[in-house]
Computed example of a mutant assay.
Amino acid sequence: MPHRNARLTVFGRRLLVERVCSGRPVAHVAAEMGISRATAHKWIRRWRAEGEAGLHDRSSRPHTTPHRTAASVETRVCDLRQSRKLGPARIGPILGLPASTVHRILTRHRLNRLAWLDRPTGTLIRRYERERPGELIHVDVKKLGRIPDGGGHKALGRQAGRATRNNMGFDYVHSAVDDHT
């Protein structure tokens, strides 16, 4: 999703391509649209190579991560966390890794919170898990006192606020949260 002040959305890129395909120079179209020539050429090149799909936004996530921590090291980090209950600052020196890397590995494997582990066994605790949505619903009722016109006791004082508050009553807000995990 482009930011709200983006020069080119998908619609703007289509417009760019249409104007260039009608025979106008790329530099002129780029100047009209307030973008650089390089950006205009980039979108024209993508459109020629991929068609309509080339005008859509792409993920900025890299295809590969060549320097990612090896799976065997990640397994060792998880084992130390579950067996010894050590934190990133203690696991890092044991394995020769920075604490930030250890924390990232623990977060990836959902072991970053000691409270989520069973203390004696070190296994991940799942408090409950429901099969289908709607199987477990939390209902909460909140009671809200109505405030009269002119303010309540904070504005008028306890005695004055009491006189204007007769028969004001309460409003109730009901909320239901489906707890399918």
Rank of each mutant, 00 (worst) to 15 (best):
P120L: 07
A49C: 03
E52F: 07
L114Q: 01
G152K: 10
V173Y: 08
P25S: 13
I125P: 06
S60I: 04
E129I: 12
K142S: 15
H109N: 08
R45F: 13
R46L: 15
G150H: 08
A155D: 01
S175G: 08
V173R: 02
K143H: 15
A38R: 15
V173C: 11
A30L: 14
A30P: 13
W116E: 00
H3P: 12
S36A: 11
D79F: 12
T107D: 05
R110A: 11
W47Y: 15
R7F: 14
S60D: 11
R61C: 04
H109F: 15
T121C: 02
T101H: 06
R45T: 14
T164R: 07
D149I: 14
W43D: 05
R162M: 10
T107M: 12
G12S: 08
E131C: 12
D57I: 09
F11P: 01
G157M: 08
H180S: 09
A89N: 04
V10L: 02
L15N: 06
P148I: 07
N5V: 03
H138S: 12
A71P: 07
T101C: 04
R13L: 09
I147H: 04
E18L: 15
R126T: 13
I35C: 13
H174D: 00
R130V: 14
H56R: 14
K42S: 07
T39S: 15
G87C: 07
V29L: 11
Y128L: 06
G34N: 01
L144D: 02
E135C: 04
P62V: 00
H56D: 04
R14Q: 11
M33I: 03
P62N: 02
H153G: 07
K142G: 08
R24V: 12
T65A: 07
E135I: 05
G34A: 03
G145C: 12
R158D: 04
M168A: 10
R127Y: 07
M33E: 05
T9P: 02
A49V: 06
A49R: 08
Y128H: 06
R61F: 02
I125Y: 01
H180Q: 04
L114C: 14
Q159C: 09
R13I: 08
R119E: 10
H63T: 10
E74C: 07
T69W: 00
T39W: 11
N166R: 11
K154M: 10
R7D: 03
K42Q: 12
A40V: 12
R162H: 09
G87K: 03
L8W: 09
K154V: 13
R48D: 02
R132M: 09
G12F: 06
V17R: 05
G161K: 03
E52S: 13
G34P: 04
I105R: 04
P93S: 00
T107N: 04
G122Y: 11
W116G: 09
S83I: 12
R81L: 05
Y172N: 06
R108D: 01
L156V: 05
G12Y: 06
V177F: 05
C78H: 11
R37S: 14
A38I: 15
G134W: 05
W47D: 01
D149T: 14
L136V: 03
H103A: 12
E52Y: 08
E52C: 09
R46C: 05
R90A: 13
V10I: 08
T75D: 01
L97R: 00
G23I: 13
I44S: 01
T107A: 15
H109M: 01
R104C: 02
G169C: 10
T107I: 06
G92P: 09
A40F: 12
E52I: 10
